[in-house]
Amino acid sequence: MDFLSFALTSAIVLGTPLILAALGELVSERSGVINLSVEGMMLVGAATGFVVTFSTGNIALGFAAAALSGGALALVHAFLCVGLKANQIISGLTLALLGAGLASFIGRDFAGLPIPSYISPLSIPLLSDIPFLGPIFFERDIIVYAAFAAVIITAIVLKRTRIGQWLKASGEAPAAADAAGVPVFIVRYTAVVFGGLMAGIAGAYFSTVFVRLWSDNLTAGRGWIAIALVIFASWRPLLLVPGALLFGFLDSLNFQFQTMGITVSTDILGMSPFVITLVALTIVWWRQQRHGGAGVPRALGLPYERESRI
């Protein structure tokens, strides 16, 4: 396999967990709740997913457990921020650290153990026969297809359905939504928990499909990149894809340079996604400032209280 097709392939594989986690965060933020604990939720999902898959030999069970554990952590965030109106930043940061610790605890006895490859690529007839691009895009595993499908479904839901209108209204003007009879609290709870489920799945993809082992801090900051991706995409689902693929590609260089014998400091390569994030944020934010309407949900980060006097 030549360099380009290998790079594209790994961009897709490494971009997939980013897409999943960022999509969940995007939905949460569109409802008005920022959740900085994506990294924590991913780690918990990765550890739980690995442990369950290792113990049962059933990867579907592993993914289900990962989703539930990520969702459970998100539920704590929702309870604090939507229910009790706590500060979303503090709650998110705390849960990010808690999640990392929890994941280490869950995976303690499983570190370094290998699991077999349970998910094999699913070749899509006809499409996979397209020269060059076919094998890259259409001989992937089912989670990759699911992630891309989820992006498209979310985009349609946001644009075309009542649920989507409710979600956007809750994030833009919760008081208006409430006055119109939209169940703002339920919408926000659901959106935050959805974000947790997606982050959990993203973590499990990493531990059970991609590297197929567990070690502490396995996701290595990808949860934070997922949060940045949401800004990168101006809170629009379809725009998550190019960003996720770019970061997936950068991530893959780390592995490739090693196999190709090019000596670049892995520390520098490891930092590169974050450097790119900073540069990208600067550009995106600057552009949005100049052209207005950044796409930031107007009530993002603000708790909604119905009886907001005293």
Partner: peptide, 27 residues
């Protein structure tokens, strides 16, 4: 129904979207 002093509208939504928000109608 109430028309509040500071209004209860979703600024980036269209007029139709605002009017049908929370009802069974579609925009």
């Amino acid at each position: 129904g109430v028309v509040y002093q500071d209004f209860r509208l979703v600024p980036p939504f269209s007029v139709v979207e605002n009017v049908v928000l929370g009802t069974r109608s579609r925009p």
